[in-house]
């Protein structure tokens, strides 16, 4: 199955998912960009995204490997990746 519903989550001070967000949509692809303040807010955001059928979520480098691991365990049906640097 092609992945056509995607989200990127940025964790940074002062971000709120209800106000810091963008949506880029084409006939073939749907991408959401969401800012969150902390891990708990990311959890709530991904719950909404997974419920809406989002297939892939990428986390910014502000998330730790441990946080990404917790999210992957919480949402096994969603592909969750994290930006890392060598």
């Amino acid at each position: 199955m092609d992945h056509t519903k995607y989200a990127f989550i940025i964790k940074a001070p002062g971000y709120r998912r209800n106000t810091h967000k963008a949506h880029m949509k084409s006939p073939a692809f749907d991408a959401k960009f969401i800012g969150v303040e902390d891990f708990d807010e990311a959890l709530a955001a991904i719950e909404d995204l997974a419920g809406a059928g989002t297939q892939v979520v990428e986390l910014c480098g502000g998330f730790s490997a441990q946080e990404a691991t917790k999210l992957r365990r919480r949402f096994p049906d969603c592909e969750i990746g994290r930006v890392t640097y060598p």
Binding site: A65, Q66, A68
Partner: peptide
């Protein structure tokens, strides 16, 4: 407890 599962898909390596 699993601390990091980043490399599980690629190498089956659990931290």
């Amino acid at each position: 407890v699993v601390h990091d599962d980043t490399l599980v898909d690629k190498y089956q390596l659990f931290i």
